[in-house]
Design a binder for these strands. Structure first.
Lengths: 189, 189
DNA sequence: CTACACATGTAAACGGTTACATGATTAT
DNA sequence: ATAATCATGTAACCGTTTACATGTGTAG
């Protein structure tokens, strides 16, 4: 049960509905995990069944009713247990890297295009993360916020998320350029 | 079928047995994917059934017999098809990030220890990648190798692998230090 | 004689993705 | 009218992980 703890951690910052959580997880604002809406509704149901989160129904007139969830004491205890246990190592698993691995034996153009598209997507994400970081630290400098802030967890994971995207972006662009220049050299011969 | 193409791409560099592949995938020398031995044996069986790889039995006297696999023409065509199709975006999914996200509400010590351990593991991997890169480029400079080399796919993915590990390493250490100094400040009060 | 490296698999359980399903309100 | 946003779920499928299973040769 992997999503479990990610959802619990996300709910530490306040009450969220399945729908709100889904948006955060989907866009990647949740910089430490990713999940589809369906999975979240399922997981929230399971968490509630096990008493780790509590949901309260909010009746809305103009919009459909929704359910807002909070972490219970048992949920926090579960997170605590999870944090003490060993983490499994994180690995890269990326279709695009597989394609680049094979690049010398397959057509390069489609892969180059995908690398450039990825870089563009990453640029967007970097901006999103940047804004989130600004919002979290408010008026303070990063240094002071990290030293004195009360809730720095989301800031720290967001930093890693942004750096990951930056690294990914740079590599994609560099690789695309390199492959392009090799294609050009090939065409000349 | 995600492992499929990763295995095909890995087999482009020569004949490998399930066991040899497993080591590469397990240690992370295969910098673009990760898989356990069992899965590889299963996947190789499937790939052979579908005619995408061909296995030949090698009888050994001193060691158990083994089967070496090569990509067939059909396998290469499958890779080609795969490369043209859209790649799904890559996301971070990491237990340790979940723990850091929750850090303000749980005990920090075990998480700090895990961050430091991760950094140490990453240091090891960075070295492995560095050596692999050296071996791949031989006597040439990186620039020349990437411009004129015939098989640069593995080099490029390895570069990304190393940068990822470096980024991960730096973040883990920075975060661990920060959390330690906050713990120290907390203790003083 | 013990541990490690070589060598290959099967079966069950789990977690995540894809497809299916529904329906109201608001903005273009 | 049409598309987007709000809002919540179920079911089938696929891919990964964990546990089980076996056996030889080599180095310490």
């Amino acid at each position: 049960m992997a999503l479990r703890h990610a959802v619990l951690a996300a709910l530490l910052d306040g009450e969220y509905s399945g729908y709100q959580l889904a948006k955060a997880f989907d866009v990647g604002v949740a910089n430490f995990w990713y999940a589809l809406p369906q999975q979240l509704y399922l997981e929230l149901a399971g968490l509630e069944r096990d008493g780790l989160v509590a949901g309260r129904r909010v009746v809305q007139e103009t919009r459909p009713n929704k359910r807002l969830f909070t972490v219970t004491a048992a949920g926090l205890a579960e997170l605590e247990r999870f944090a003490v246990a060993a983490s499994k190592p994180s690995f890269i698993r990326d279709d695009l890297l597989v394609k680049v691995q094979a690049i010398d034996r397959i057509g390069a153009e489609p892969v180059i295009a995908q690398l450039e598209e990825r870089a563009a997507v990453a640029t967007g994400r970097i901006e999103v993360f940047g804004k989130l970081l600004q919002r979290l630290r408010g008026d303070e400098t990063e240094e002071r916020y990290l030293r004195d802030g009360e809730r720095i967890g989301p800031y720290l994971t967001c930093l890693r998320g942004r750096e990951f995207e930056q690294g990914h972006h740079d590599w994609c662009l560099r690789t695309a350029e390199l492959l392009r220049s090799r294609e050009a050299a090939r065409a000349e011969r």
